[in-house]
Computed example of a mutant assay.
Amino acid sequence: MQSESALLARLRGTIAQAKAVASAHPPVPLGSEAADRALGGGLKRDGLHEFYAAEPQDSPAALAMALLCAVRCRATGHGAPLLWLRERKARSDGQPYGPGLAELGIDPDSVILLDLPDLMAVLRAGADSLHHGGATAALLEMPGKASAFDLTASRRLALAAARMGMMVLVARGCAQPVPSVAHSRWRVASAPSAALAADAPGHPVFDLTLIRHRGGKEGIDLRLEWNRDEQSFRAPLSGGVSAPAIGGADRSGGRRAA
Rank of each mutant, 00 (worst) to 15 (best):
M1W: 12
M1Q: 06
Q2Y: 13
Q2N: 09
S3G: 13
S3P: 05
S3L: 03
E4G: 02
S5I: 06
L7F: 10
L8R: 14
L8K: 13
A9P: 01
A9C: 06
I15E: 12
A18V: 00
V21R: 15
S23G: 02
V28P: 00
L30S: 11
A34Y: 00
A35P: 04
D36W: 01
L39Q: 02
L39M: 11
L39H: 12
G40M: 00
L48V: 04
E50L: 15
Y52T: 00
Y52H: 05
E55T: 03
D58T: 04
P60Y: 02
A61T: 02
A64H: 14
C69M: 14
A70L: 15
V71G: 12
V71E: 15
C73I: 00
C73Y: 05
R74N: 03
G77A: 11
H78M: 06
L83A: 11
L85P: 07
E87N: 05
R88D: 05
R91S: 06
D93R: 15
G94D: 07
Q95F: 15
Q95C: 08
Q95A: 12
Y97R: 06
A102F: 10
P108W: 12
P108F: 10
D109R: 15
S110V: 02
S110H: 07
V111Y: 01
V111C: 06
V111I: 03
V111E: 02
I112N: 12
I112F: 14
I112M: 11
L113D: 07
L113A: 12
D115F: 11
P117A: 13
V122M: 05
L123N: 12
A125F: 08
A127P: 03
S129I: 00
S129K: 03
L130T: 01
G133S: 06
A135Y: 15
T136R: 01
T136P: 09
T136D: 14
A137I: 06
A138W: 00
A138I: 04
L140M: 15
M142S: 08
M142F: 11
P143K: 08
A146P: 15
S147G: 03
L151Q: 09
R156P: 02
A162Y: 06
R163H: 05
R163M: 01
G165C: 08
A175W: 08
V178G: 14
S180K: 04
S184E: 09
R185K: 09
R185D: 02
R185L: 07
V188N: 00
A189Q: 10
A191Q: 08
S193W: 12
A195S: 14
L196F: 13
A197Y: 13
A198W: 09
D199A: 14
A200S: 13
P204M: 04
P204T: 01
F206W: 12
L210N: 09
I211T: 03
I211P: 05
G215V: 00
G216S: 06
I220S: 08
I220V: 03
D221Q: 07
L222H: 04
R223F: 09
R223L: 12
R223G: 09
E225K: 11
W226F: 04
W226G: 01
N227D: 11
R228T: 03
R228I: 01
Q231R: 15
R234F: 11
R234C: 08
V241A: 11
A243V: 05
P244N: 10
P244A: 07
A245S: 11
A245Y: 01
I246A: 09
G247H: 09
A249S: 08
A249V: 02
D250T: 07
R251C: 10
G254E: 10
R256W: 13
A258C: 11
